[in-house]
């Protein structure tokens, strides 16, 4: 479990997270939604330990093994299988992970020559090579076509079924409906509403959530 306790993160004069409190517990995927600049990526990076809080605390119980897939992952200048093997925590499960993400056919191809969708799935396999108990995905389908999006979502479901806690951000409400167990709406660096997915979409408790679900702009 990872708990944000009144966490503020500032970059110069800009406040990225504003006294944000949030608990990421084991279980179904948590999906962070919100307009651009709401703080979704910052939450993921902070939970991953890549951004220290300016104030407040981020508590991690039981030292969870963490891994992240960035919105634009960087492929090492190696083959696909070498990228996965590089991140491997212990036993070599490269073939198994490439099969999980549907890239066994591309194992020996240079990673940077793969398509955008394939690179995203390869980044996911590489993150899984860390044998994480919690996996952060930053807009994993943001720049993918529908077929690649479906392939990625299928893999995310498979990962969730393995008992790995998935925490992902998306600006796509449809994707949130398809994948989320819990939805967290962020706005201006704060949690506006956090609820189980059916309740969030069917009976939002806040005006901001109602507007966001209705497709209105949050400014």
């Amino acid at each position: 479990m990872i708990r944000f306790d009144e966490v503020t993160i500032a970059a110069g004069a800009v406040t990225l997270l504003d006294r944000l409190s949030l608990t990421l517990a084991a279980g179904a995927p948590t999906v962070l939604i919100g307009p651009n600049g709401a703080g979704k990526s910052t939450v993921l990076r902070a939970a991953m330990g890549l951004l220290p809080p300016t104030s407040g605390r981020i508590l991690r119980e039981g030292e969870p093994r963490r891994a992240i897939v960035f919105q634009r992952p960087t492929m090492l200048r190696r083959t696909a299988e070498a990228n996965v093997r590089y991140a491997m925590a212990d036993a070599d499960r490269t073939a198994e992970l490439l099969a999980l993400v549907g890239l066994e056919h591309a194992a020996t191809r240079p990673a940077r020559r793969l398509s955008g969708g394939e690179q995203q799935r390869l980044a996911l396999a590489r993150a899984l090579a860390r044998d994480p108990t919690i996996l952060f995905l930053d807009e994993p389908t943001a720049s993918l076509d529908p077929a690649s999006t479906k392939a990625m979502e299928d893999v995310i479901r498979a990962v969730g079924r393995q008992g790995i806690k998935v925490v992902m951000s998306t600006h796509d409400l449809g994707e949130a409906r398809r994948l989320a167990g819990e939805v967290v709406l962020l706005h201006r660096g704060r949690v506006v509403e956090a609820a189980a997915a059916p309740r969030f979409f069917d009976a939002p408790a806040t005006e901001e959530a109602r507007k966001f679900i209705a497709g209105e702009l949050l400014v």
Partner: peptide, 10 residues
């Protein structure tokens, strides 16, 4: 600069 986030995360 290109690899920093990935290698730090790993």
């Amino acid at each position: 600069l290109e690899y920093r986030d990935e290698l730090t995360a790993m």
